[in-house]
Simulated assay, not measured.
Amino acid sequence: MFSQLKQDLRAVFDRDPAVRSVFEVIFCYPGFHAMLFYRPSHWLWTHRCHFLGRFVSHVGRFMTGIEIHPGAVIGPSFFIDHGMGVVIGETAEIGENCTLYHGVTLGGTSWAKEKRHPTLEDNVVVGSGAKILGPFTVGRDSKIGSNSVVVKEVPKSATVVGIPGRVVLSGEQQSGVDLEHGNLPDPVAKAVSCMMEQIGRLEDQVQGLKQEQQALKAELARTRGTESR
């Protein structure tokens, strides 16, 4: 537990350029505070002290605005940036070196007492406000765009945006954790751009047809004038 907390502390320095000192992280970072509550609450939960685990988790929620169920499984070097409004459900599983921004929900879509929350593999980045709902896997090295709603499996090294979430890039092998979750392609803008290009080509074709029509009319008028003579 303590070794994982040390790795969580190191993750803050690796992924937040605003951090200045260890004391700043310990006293001023709610994402790290949430892990200080989660790690012991998870230990209590796995040792069948369910009430104490939930109580520690609830205190952490009150103190940080971040709700992590003690039954969730979270790997080392986990980082929650800003943190307010993050919700991680009971059967969620998170791998190593994952990053969540504020407003993220790892939620379930069933009332059954079974696996109902998502699994995030290593090096996944989830942008602010994103919702990942259901018992499926988000592949390693993937990025989920801000405010996306993901409801189905995500392959590894993929980039997902939109509502519902759509894979717009895939197969790009990342080197380490890529925090450029705000620099993502916009499939709607791309579709509109393609449509405008197509409209431009159609307008050119229509203009060409009009010119041909005018030329034919002029030729027909000359032919009729010659015949009338």
Rank of each mutant, 00 (worst) to 15 (best):
Leu5Ala: 13
Lys6Glu: 13
Gln7Leu: 13
Phe13Pro: 04
Asp14Gly: 03
Arg15Lys: 05
Pro17Cys: 13
Val19Cys: 13
Ser21His: 11
Val22Arg: 13
Phe23His: 11
Glu24Cys: 10
Val25Glu: 02
Ile26Trp: 11
Ile26Met: 15
Phe27Tyr: 07
Tyr29Ile: 12
Ala34Glu: 06
Met35Gly: 09
Phe37Val: 02
Phe37Thr: 02
Tyr38Trp: 14
His42Gln: 12
His42Gly: 05
Trp43Asn: 03
Leu44Asn: 07
His47Asn: 15
Arg48His: 15
Arg48Ser: 14
His50Thr: 14
Phe51Ser: 00
Phe51Asn: 00
Leu52Ser: 07
Gly53Ser: 07
Gly53Asn: 06
Arg54Val: 07
Ser57Gln: 00
Ser57Thr: 01
His58Pro: 00
Val59Ser: 08
Phe62His: 03
Met63Glu: 08
Met63His: 04
Met63Pro: 02
Gly65His: 10
Ile66Ser: 04
Ile68Met: 01
Pro70Thr: 10
Pro70Gln: 08
Gly71Ser: 08
Ala72Glu: 02
Phe79Arg: 06
Phe79Glu: 05
Phe79Thr: 08
Phe79Ser: 03
His82Val: 12
Gly83Asn: 11
Met84Ser: 14
Val86Trp: 04
Glu93Gly: 11
Glu93Thr: 15
Ile94Ala: 01
Gly95Tyr: 10
Glu96Pro: 01
Glu96Gly: 02
Glu96Cys: 12
Asn97Lys: 10
Leu100Lys: 01
Tyr101Asn: 03
Val104Met: 02
Val104Asn: 03
Thr105Gly: 09
Leu106Thr: 11
Gly108Lys: 08
Ser110Val: 04
Glu114Ala: 11
Glu114Arg: 06
Arg116Tyr: 10
Arg116Glu: 10
Arg116Thr: 10
His117Trp: 05
His117Cys: 09
Pro118Lys: 06
